[in-house]
């Protein structure tokens, strides 16, 4: 009855050392106020980002609002064309792909959206929404398609009797399940989940996270899981990348990030998370960052964090861009004084 692993999924190699997606020096600039001859400025939403997502893992992508997480996710999912850089997926660069070739590629590469209200067409029934990907790729028709839709709905915890209902008749959590079912029905390898739970009630968030983890195990999925808070991705990420103002500040496996953060920004983010244990909570000393997040139109020179960094040293921090480099085995950080806070 359930959508059991098809032969295709069974044979899916999940070697967690292999990169499934490689993002290479990707930038995404949104021009603003550009005249006919150009010359306007741009929002540098993503400004030179490189990392890889390994097969079968969940990579958490974390950062404050407006730091460019969604933009990066959309660039990887090819919903926004990158301004420059490469997104290598299964050995092919997706960035220059257009038309039918790109469309075909989308079968493997899906997205789950933050807003379960805005991301479902209000004029389509749940059955039409979940069946549309199959229709687009001519994968199943008629009875076969509806069977498959039923199956996926059940897998995602939706009652297939609700096939003919419209999205507005469902709760936020159920809508998010519809969004997940729509992404899952194509049997993708890689899913970009853009804050899939942040719009939901706290009581429902855990259910959706559990569903996503479960699906990952059954279908050998690889996730890029975006969140604006380190606590959200803690227990579901294999590795975590921390983003600030369009750049990756630190990337390492979850354990190292949480136990031994090297970047002052990551430290500050972690110190702001309340601890459930009252004794530890009493001892927690939040590192308060001064000032506002600078505008991505005019990011600070050198290290973009220098305007708010508690350990910044001048002039080096405001003049030299710290490269994102390995500090201790595979733990990358972009800071001239990594680990010194």
């Amino acid at each position: 009855m359930t959508l059991e692993a098809s032969p295709e999924v069974e044979s899916r190699v999940v070697d967690k050392q292999l990169a499934l997606v490689s993002v290479e020096d990707v930038t995404k600039h949104f021009p603003i106020g550009a005249g006919l001859l150009g010359g306007g400025s741009a929002v540098r939403a993503v400004d030179g980002v490189s990392f890889e997502v390994r097969a079968g893992e969940t990579l958490g992508l974390v950062g404050e609002s407006g730091c460019g997480k969604s933009t990066l996710g959309r660039v990887i999912a090819q919903l926004h064309p990158a301004t420059s850089g490469k997104v290598i997926f299964q050995g092919q660069d997706l960035v220059p792909m257009r038309g039918e070739k790109l469309r075909r590629m989308r079968q493997e590469l899906q997205m789950i959206f933050q807003d379960p209200y805005a991301s479902l067409n209000p004029r389509m029934t749940v059955g039409e929404i979940i069946g549309e990907p199959l229709k687009n790729f001519g994968l199943a028709r008629g009875k076969e398609r509806s069977n498959r839709v039923h199956e996926v709905m059940r897998t995602c915890g939706l009652n297939p009797n609700f096939l003919n209902r419209y999205p507005h008749e469902f709760s936020g959590g159920q809508r998010q399940r519809i969004g997940i079912a729509r992404a899952l029905v194509l049997n993708p390898t890689f899913i970009v989940a853009d804050e899939p739970i942040s719009a939901l009630d706290v009581s429902i968030q855990a259910q959706i996270v559990n569903l996503m983890e479960d699906l990952q195990n059954r279908f050998k999925l690889t996730y890029l899981f975006i969140a604006h808070d380190l606590s959200v991705v803690r227990h579901l990420s294999d590795r975590v990348a921390v983003m600030y103002l369009g750049k990756i500040m630190e990337i390492a496996d979850s354990h190292s990030i949480y136990e031994n953060p090297l970047h002052p920004y990551t430290k500050a983010l972690l110190s702001s998370i309340p601890i459930p244990d009252p004794d530890l909570e009493a001892k927690r000393q939040p590192i308060l960052l001064q000032g506002e997040i600078p505008s991505p139109v005019n990011p600070p020179s050198g290290c973009r964090f220098h305007t708010r960094c508690p350990i910044a040293q001048f002039p080096i921090c405001s003049e030299q861009v710290p490269p994102l480099e390995s500090k201790v085995d595979g733990h990358l950080a972009a800071c001239h004084f990594a680990g010194q806070l």
Binding site: R154, G157, N161, E169, D214, N217
Partner: peptide
């Protein structure tokens, strides 16, 4: 590899809407 899937079909979240008659859509029209 695959862990035993938990069954999501009848969760609390579901019952909230199951008071509706199935298939009776109150459309915008």
């Amino acid at each position: 590899m695959a862990t035993a899937p938990s069954d999501y079909v009848f969760q609390d979240e579901f019952t909230a809407d199951s008071t509706y008659e199935t298939g009776e859509a109150v459309s915008l029209w």
